[in-house]
């Protein structure tokens, strides 16, 4: 019993803490989106609720809570009610394998700062879970019984098949280079080495472009496409169910940023800094802080790109996915494996 407790208790604490951080992050990313978009358009942004509008997410949450939850008559009920969960849950589950920091040593025992420390296939787990996230869009769009929604679902489904190959292949070089599917191994492989966005520049570019399609953000937010198909797959949703879609989208953004940081920007690493020197507790805390700062930068980048670029056309996205990203990722794979096999590059662990 004690053995179980020793495993479950730290895991439970970590889950609670990380969920709290992520959900707060989601709330404040929505505020950041509105603020940054306002600044980019020479506006002020929300500033009425609390100082500098800092309580705006709370107000938004309350509003979602009290709104009427409408189920259209033509909807296919069981699926319609299930779909928002299919978006939110995968988005939150993916955080279980992302390493947030080094480790905290308390009473002679060290606790690594990620939820599932034994996972040596973290990247595969993450990819498989996020490949399921598309079902939220498909189910929601199809079951609403609305033409705009089903167009959103169709676009989402065809979008997913055109960018996912690029994502997989661009990540493969990182995996081969560091010799492991474990995200913590990939982070360690960048410790004291140049971060992977320098050595795997082509793969980084492919992944960066594809990740915008993965998170359904502009310029690839075709499943939503407000100006063409109203709200796309979530046209009919309202109240808390819409909030779930909304939170899922922003949680996906945080996951995508975390993945970018972990795979290409050295995770919690900073050049010439060894976290072990900062003591058993502060080393872990500071490394986590660095990690979240990097995530914040990429969240800003997502918002920045959204308010700069217009939406791509549907066929243009397919073209980019199949005719540009896919061959580019293949070329990258060929190049990197050649470098590793014939010139001895790569990280030996």
């Amino acid at each position: 019993m004690n053995a179980w407790l020793a495993i479950l208790l730290p895991a439970a604490i970590k889950i609670v803490v990380i969920l709290a951080i992520v959900l707060t992050g989601v709330a404040y990313t929505t505020l950041a989106e509105r603020k940054v978009s306002a600044w980019m358009q020479d506006r002020k942004g929300p500033n009425r609720v609390g100082p500098f509008g800092l309580l705006q997410p709370v107000a938004d949450g309350m509003k979602f809570f009290f709104k009427e939850d409408i189920t259209p008559r033509q909807a296919y009920k069981p699926v319609y009610l299930l779909a928002p969960l299919c978006t939110l849950v995968p988005a939150l589950v993916t955080f279980s394998v992302i390493p947030f920091g080094t480790e905290i040593t308390v009473a002679g025992k060290s606790y690594p700062l990620w939820i599932a420390p034994g996972m040596d296939l973290g990247l595969l787990f993450l990819l498989s879970i996020s490949s399921l996230a598309i079902y939220g869009i498909i189910l929601g769009g199809w079951s609403s019984g609305n033409k705009y929604s089903i167009f959103g679902a169709l676009r989402g489904a065809s979008q997913v098949v055109s960018y996912e190959l690029g994502v997989g292949l661009s990540l493969l070089t990182v995996v081969i280079w560091s010799g492991s599917f474990g995200l913590q191994d990939i982070v360690n492989a960048q410790k004291g080495h140049p971060w992977f966005f320098l050595t795997h520049f082509l793969g980084f570019i492919v992944f960066l472009v594809a990740i915008f399609a993965e998170t359904n953000r502009l310029p690839f937010d075709l499943p939503e496409g407000e100006s063409e198909i109203v709200g796309g797959y979530h046209t009919e949703y309202s109240g808390l169910r819409f909030a779930m879609f909304f939170m899922g989208e922003y949680a996906n953004m945080i996951t995508a940023s975390a993945l970018l940081v972990t795979l290409f920007f050295g995770g919690w690493n900073l050049p010439f800094v060894d976290w072990a020197k900062f003591g058993p507790i502060w080393g872990g805390v500071l490394s986590a802080a660095v990690f979240f700062t990097k995530i914040a930068f990429f969240l800003f980048f997502f918002i920045w790109v959204r308010w700069t670029l217009p939406r791509f056309r549907y066929d243009q996205l397919m073209n980019i996915g199949w005719k540009r990203l896919f061959p580019l990722a293949l070329a990258n794979l060929l190049l990197m494996t050649t470098l590793m096999v014939f010139f001895g590059f790569g990280v030996k662990q």
Binding site: K44, W304, W307, L309
Partner: peptide, 23 residues
């Protein structure tokens, strides 16, 4: 073109004096 666009939007962020919002 993308980098140009990003630069333009970024330049607007610190223009605190030129905000057009009327409270």
């Amino acid at each position: 073109a993308i980098l140009q666009g990003l630069a333009i939007t970024f330049r607007h962020i610190p223009r605190i004096k030129k905000r057009v919002t009327l409270e």
